Amino acid sequence: MASQGTKRSYEQMETDGERQNATEIRASVGKMIGGIGRFYIQMCTELKLSDYEGRLIQNSLTIERMVLSAFDERRNKYLEEHPSAGKDPKKTGGPIYRRVNGKWMRELILYDKEEIRRIWRQANNGDDATAGLTHMMIWHSNLNDATYQRTRALVRTGMDPRMCSLMQGSTLPRRSGAAGAAVKGVGTMVMELVRMIKRGINDRNFWRGENGRKTRIAYERMCNILKGKFQTAAQKAMMDQVRESRNPGNAEFEDLTFLARSALILRGSVAHKSCLPACVYGPAVASGYDFEREGYSLVGIDPFRLLQNSQVYSLIRPNENPAHKSQLVWMACHSAAFEDLRVLSFIKGTKVLPRGKLSTRGVQIASNENMETMESSTLELRSRYWAIRTRSGGNTNQQRASAGQISIQPTFSVQRNLPFDRTTIMAAFNGNTEGRTSDMRTEIIRMMESARPEDVSFQGRGVFELSDEKAASPIVPSFDMSNEGSYFFGDNAEEYDN
């Protein structure tokens, strides 16, 4: 783990906690998980779902989305002020799938948001429990990260689609708070800032007046979040320049895209947490497990152990491969979309394939898809080993990566060399080191050039047997250095459309 220093740990961010010791953190995270579980059980009762239907990941996603929508204050306010045809701002819903006479049927349900809020609060001892809501947002974000390569979004903001390893959390809503900021990748933060800068260039009043003052505060806050992700002084200094700019424009845009590229080699610290679907927490609570009393951590053995003992089902389209669908969801559960496939294969105990080789589309089923041909199958979400999630980018030494994705962002704290394609990355730096950030740029390029592919990161860190909950005997895996390590390699994943 990167030293926490003055930073709060993510469990504290996750639970809005002030400084807590490890036991208190485990208890408050457990409380959050228990609340999600209780809410899910109650919703299944309301909807009269069978046990099997309640364990269907598509039903879980609909129920999670309903509660997130019920608590989305800004959108609710907007919907009330701008009524649109056929949208009731006070209601929320989605597809629920039921097994009827041996076939899967889709039923569109509609609930009062007020009623959903009441059920959620009741499951969370009367609190709004925003930490639990954020947790579900991060699960949705991790699922998107594993399912889609955001080529269009990258290109629109002047970045290269091969930089997708920097895009963790790119679909997280803005209201996801400190826990959300911690899991956002460098590219995601750059993209958010670039969008602001572009608006400022096109709209003279963007930075002016009372609204402009708020915009400015948001801009500086985002700059500080991004600065905190960088691990070298030169990158941090460049972020200070971007933040202090009187009138952010093209120079800042250039600096930010430069920094994003540099992060492929001088990786930023991005938190990883295993956020599971509500249909995993519900049955665990129903079986009598007391998360608050037992304590829970999002970055240790607990999620692995929970998945070892969970039964989750998914709808499967006619030509999809259930094992591939399982891999997709497994990666999402562990926030591992940008991790090295060699490491993932070792931990999972079966070969993890790149996205383009998977015969599976996303987990969600569109409303126009034919239910007649839908089957369902068990998702295999178990693992051979477990490993500690990392909050750091690993040290800054790398190795060759593949054509589709030119770097990785480690999820697990496991000893290995970190793949990246130096030639491709360095070719993108057209040696432009003039301007006010020239000395920093020169320094950053120097550090990137001296990074050695064969150097090892996370020295001495290994994986653990599932029986080793105290992480007492690390097993340090050895990897084939020459092997392909990137998930979005030469990829044809669908595009994420909101």
Results as ranks from 00 to 15, higher is better:
Ile406Met: 15
Met196Asn: 05
Leu266Thr: 10
Thr92Ile: 11
Ser482Ile: 12
Lys273His: 07
Met1Val: 09
Lys273Asn: 08
Ile63His: 01
Gly132Phe: 05
Arg342Cys: 02
Ala260Thr: 15
Tyr289Cys: 13
Ser84Pro: 00
Lys48Ser: 14
Thr423Val: 05
Met136Glu: 05
Asp340Asn: 11
Arg213Ser: 05
Tyr487Gln: 04
Ile265Cys: 13
Arg8Ile: 00
Ser376Asp: 02
Ala323Leu: 08
Arg441Thr: 08
Ala471Glu: 13
Lys48Ala: 09
Glu252Leu: 03
Pro83Cys: 08
Glu107His: 10
Gly185Lys: 02
Met331Gly: 01
Arg422Trp: 13
Ile475Gln: 10
Tyr97Trp: 14
Glu495His: 06
Pro322Met: 13
Asn224Phe: 02
Asp203Lys: 01
Val476Ser: 00
Gly30Ser: 10
Leu256His: 12
Tyr385His: 14
Asn430Trp: 07
Glu465Asp: 11
Thr442Lys: 06
Val155Gln: 07
Lys48Arg: 13
Thr433His: 07
Tyr219Lys: 06
Ala123Met: 10
Val29Glu: 05
Ser9Gln: 14
Gln20Pro: 13
Lys227Cys: 03
Leu256Lys: 07
Arg106Thr: 13
Gln241Lys: 14
Asn309Ala: 13
Val463Thr: 13
Arg150Phe: 04
Val100Ile: 12
Ala181His: 11
Leu379Gln: 07
Glu294Met: 13
Gln122Trp: 04
Thr433Glu: 12
Ser314Ala: 12
Thr437Cys: 09
Ile408Gln: 03
Cys279Asp: 07
Ser376His: 12
Ala85Cys: 06
Tyr313Ser: 15
Tyr10Met: 01
Ser297Tyr: 10
Gly5Met: 02
Gln168Met: 09
Asn498Pro: 00
Val363Ala: 09
Met1His: 13
Phe346Lys: 14
Ala27Arg: 13
Arg117Gln: 13
Val29Thr: 02
Phe420Gln: 02
Asp160Asn: 08
Glu252Tyr: 06
Gln235Gly: 13
Ser9Arg: 00
Phe429Cys: 09
Gly177Thr: 03
Leu298Gln: 13
Asn144Thr: 12
Phe258Cys: 08
Phe489Arg: 01
Gly288Glu: 13
Met136Asp: 00
Gly185Thr: 10
Asp255Glu: 13
Leu108Asp: 07
Ser383Arg: 10
Lys91Thr: 04
